Amino acid sequence: MNRRPTLLAAAALTAVAALSLSACGSGDDSSSDDIKGADVGGGTASASPSVSASQGGVRRPEITLPSEFQADFENWANSDPKLQAVMDDGREQLRAKYAAVIDADPNSDAVAFYSSEATQVSARKWIKQFTDDDDSIIGKVTVFEPKALISDTGSGVLFYCVDERQASTKNRKTGKIVKTPDEPESVLQYRTRLDKTAQGVWKTTSVTVAKGGCSR
């Protein structure tokens, strides 16, 4: 599955300008304690699978993933409710893209709900890489080391790592399974910016994906 996120990175190479967080496992000695507003907290692994119904008075789409594909979010908890809201909507944007691949639906309403117009274009292009090949995804990805802050301009910044080494693509027609290579470059770092809408939804407005940006 690694080749598709690489293509996503090329399609959505939008820098999070003037905003920075320490890289996940990049070898940088800085930690979340060095980042103003960043607090991973002491939450337990795997937060609730989907933010459905109303959160903050906003009706959000319910996103479900089948049993053959798992997206495990480790320590996805923050003691600051504002940063938790950024993390929750950032998580759902990623889950929406996985669900759209599995459903072969590049025009997913859930993807649109959590993405700006610009990131909808890149997300749909990424999803279409799979649907054009008639591929779905199976196995498991682990999402870990979330780091979030809210900038002076009010934008949210969310970095996180995605380990894809236990995930595979599966062709819908032939059943052929292609495993993600078991190598450091299959652990990706997502660098995202989010802006809050008038309705209170943190929409992802910028995504950069770095291969091998995290270690595990």
Rank of each mutant, 00 (worst) to 15 (best):
R216L: 12
K170F: 05
R191P: 00
G200F: 10
V207Q: 13
V157K: 11
G212S: 11
Y98L: 13
N2D: 08
K170W: 06
K211I: 05
V143E: 03
L94I: 14
I35M: 13
K179W: 05
G57C: 07
S186V: 14
A18T: 15
S31G: 10
D72Y: 04
L149H: 11
A38L: 14
T205I: 09
S26N: 08
T205Y: 06
K176Y: 10
D72K: 13
I138K: 12
A85L: 05
S122N: 02
P181R: 08
D134W: 02
D33Q: 15
T208Q: 13
S206C: 06
S215Y: 06
G175Q: 04
D28C: 11
V40H: 06
N75Q: 14
F144C: 01
S20T: 14
D88T: 14
S215W: 12
I150L: 09
L65F: 12
D29L: 15
A96V: 11
D163H: 12
D195V: 09
R216K: 12
S108A: 03
I127S: 09
Q129T: 14
V207G: 05
T14W: 07
Q84I: 01
K125M: 13
V178P: 03
K179C: 03
D135E: 15
I102A: 04
V141Q: 01
V16K: 09
D105T: 05
G90R: 04
L194K: 06
A15R: 09
W76P: 00
Q199Y: 05
A23D: 03
E185Y: 10
G56S: 09
S26D: 10
C214L: 10
D33K: 15
T174S: 15
T169L: 04
N78W: 05
K128M: 08
K203D: 04
V157E: 00
R59Y: 01
V51R: 14
A11K: 02
L149V: 03
Q129D: 12
F113L: 04
T205E: 01
R165H: 00
E183F: 09
S115Y: 04
R59D: 13
R165F: 01
S48L: 08
P181L: 07
S52A: 15
T119W: 01
T192K: 07
A110I: 04
K97T: 14
V187N: 02
A100D: 09
D28Q: 04
K203I: 09
V58R: 13
L94C: 06
M87C: 05
D33L: 11
V111G: 08
G90L: 02
Q129F: 08
S151G: 14
A17D: 06
W202I: 01
A198M: 05
A110P: 07
D152S: 15
